[in-house]
Design a protein around this nucleic acid. Structure first.
Lengths: 365, 365
DNA sequence: AAAACCTGTCCATTATGCAAC
DNA sequence: TGTTGCATAATGGACAGGTTT
């Protein structure tokens, strides 16, 4: 339809830029621009026959409403702001591309688009949000990686801006709309999985206790161990990087009566653990089980493959967009959702596994 | 300044939404809205003293021009369209998050923002671009992963839309503005590096010859081998996935007089090669050298670490935005840029390396 | 006469209310 | 009287050209 027209080059209409406007459609049909607008936005106000003629012309001419004009008039841009984070080389993929893709897809289905902003610190991020708001560029924001006392949440709330967060409100905020993944249940599943492989001395390599997510994941490990009658003395709390995971693993394995399984809070840490095992001449899987979290590309592609927890990012993205739309539409309903991650089992946690058993097994709990 | 105001909640101005407009500033200073506009966009037209008063009021009230109004008037949105791709689990990180972050940063510095679209096939991508154009949502596009006979390039050119591509114009198009990374030089450097480690039978595991990028990278390997007096009989052409890299490696090593070094066209393939070596009981580095391309997170975090070629994505992003800005400004100058990747050496290509020698060495050529 | 400022009209769209059939 | 279509005004900003001092 519009596919084979030239936009800027040939200006055969009255407009130098060649865009089709309401006026063009109106002229073509022989009605006023208002009727065209009504036919599209308020069909009840226009006679069925006229409406059909108008809609036919809309299709024929390939009319699409001008985003700026519509935004100006409606005070609504149909743009959702998202921040992109810098990825660090010492961390496994941040899943950002998967997440953004899913988010863009859901937004598209809802007739919205994503607008990016970028910042490396919280103050800068808040300033970037503020600028988008001041220039009336966005209707809402999607936040990622919330934490207790999150300044962004506080600022956006103060400004009365619609928000949905990937990451729960750790300070018990009942109002914030969020979607999160149940790390506790995920880590619990991973722990039970290695226990089922016969492991009894299961350690946790987690994040510092200052991290709410870290405490949540550690609780999953503790839950499982307690239920299974295993002790919970073997654990470490380290920053989320490769070197820290590696060093913590060495420390844990140097202890008397060392762990035979390592439940890690992230793939990054788990990959560090795999390195440490290799340095000690131990085989992941056969000698020491290792599991991660995130199911990053690196987990699938490293050797041996790393057992990990897959986050349902498509679902997260869908729910976030749905939530934002509800808030914008003025009918907020379910606002806080916890989703289950899926355990993806690979060789790093399988006792008898050789590299030939490379087919990954999914086990949903 | 504007930081501590409430946007939507308190409407203390004449506007229900609480945004500061030109009119507000004008009223506050006691001039017309036009003078405020002139003070900002055409300072020469307003007396210095008045201009200072106006600018002071702009700062004081926190005035920011309304994006939609400005776009409507100027026929320019200051938005740049970018497509986000779905990442596949059988491929190493697509560098998308690093690239997007850098792109967003450069765009921000140029006073622009990125708007995302999403599609899984070329036709859908073109339709998404078309929609953004028809709704006058974007001024330009940044493309990634161009190929010969690229339908997107063709369509955007036909429409007369400003574009800059990450990836050269493989069909010799002199007009397309692009930035690319010199894969041939990079692969050549990797090949020379393993040769310097004493390897003489160096194989290439590359992409199908239907891929221009694949041919380019293979040429780098061939260049180096020819210069060094090594033969170029050992090579494979496979799709860019883990399983293909693994299978190709087994085939190459099953041959009589097998290769002792594998120069791979991507980290994904190289990670497959590492898996194959492990399955044969061979040690990467000590027994067979392996190199990848992209320096993905997985390359840094796998064991042994994977030698790879780092793409200067910040530079790519900066150049792409600069190019787009030049085209939009009507003064296109340098339009085609080839950047050198950087060889990051890790254990997978070092003869005597043990996992303890984990400190990566960078070697720029 | 020139510097400084402002009026008018346009960008594309939509909510409101009025005229007409 | 009720339906149907249209003129008006407003959204916020920028530019050309005209008016003021």
């Amino acid at each position: 339809m519009t596919e084979d027209e030239t936009v800027q080059a040939s200006a055969r209409g009255p407009h130098p830029h060649g865009h089709v406007t309401l006026e063009d459609v109106a002229r073509h049909v022989g009605v006023s621009a208002q009727s065209v607008s009504n036919a599209l936005n308020n069909p009840a106000r226009v006679a069925p026959a006229t409406r059909d003629r108008i809609l036919a012309a809309v299709t024929e001419l390939g009319y699409r409403p001008n985003r700026s004009a519509r935004a100006l008039r409606n005070q609504r841009s149909r743009l959702i702001g998202v921040k992109v984070e810098a990825s660090r080389g010492d961390r496994a993929a941040l899943l950002l591309d998967q997440f953004l893709h899913a988010l863009a897809e859901s937004a598209g289905a809802a007739g919205c688009h994503l607008i990016l902003c970028q910042s490396d610190d919280e103050a800068g991020e808040i300033a970037a949000y503020r600028e988008l708001l001041d220039t009336t560029s966005v209707d809402a924001f999607v936040l990622t990686s919330t934490h207790a006392g999150d300044g962004r949440v506080e600022a956006l709330r103060r400004w009365g801006v619609p928000v949905a967060a990937f990451g729960r409100s750790w300070d018990g905020d009942e109002d914030l709309a969020w979607v999160d993944v149940d790390g506790r249940a995920g880590i619990r599943a991973a722990t039970e999985h290695v226990a089922a492989q016969g492991h009894r001395r299961i350690a946790h390599v987690g994040w510092p206790l200052s991290s709410e997510t870290g405490r949540d994941r550690r609780a999953g490990w503790r839950d499982a161990c307690t239920d299974l009658g295993l002790d919970t003395v073997r654990h470490a709390e380290v920053p989320d990087d490769f070197a820290a995971g590696r060093a913590a693993t060495h420390r844990l394995l140097d202890a008397p009566d060392p762990a035979t399984a390592l439940i890690c809070a992230s793939d990054t840490i788990a990959l560090g653990a795999l390195r440490a095992l290799s340095e000690r001449g131990l085989r992941a899987g056969a000698d020491v089980a290792v599991t991660g979290f995130d199911n990053s590309p690196a987990a699938a592609l490293t050797t041996p493959g790393l057992t990990s927890l897959h986050q349902p990012l498509e679902q997260v993205a869908h729910d976030l967009i749905a939530t934002v739309e509800e808030i914008l539409g003025g009918t907020p309903s379910r606002r806080q959702t916890l989703l289950r991650p899926e355990l993806v089992i690979r060789e790093s946690s399988l006792r008898g596994a050789t590299a030939q058993d490379a087919t990954p097994t999914k086990e949903t709990r």
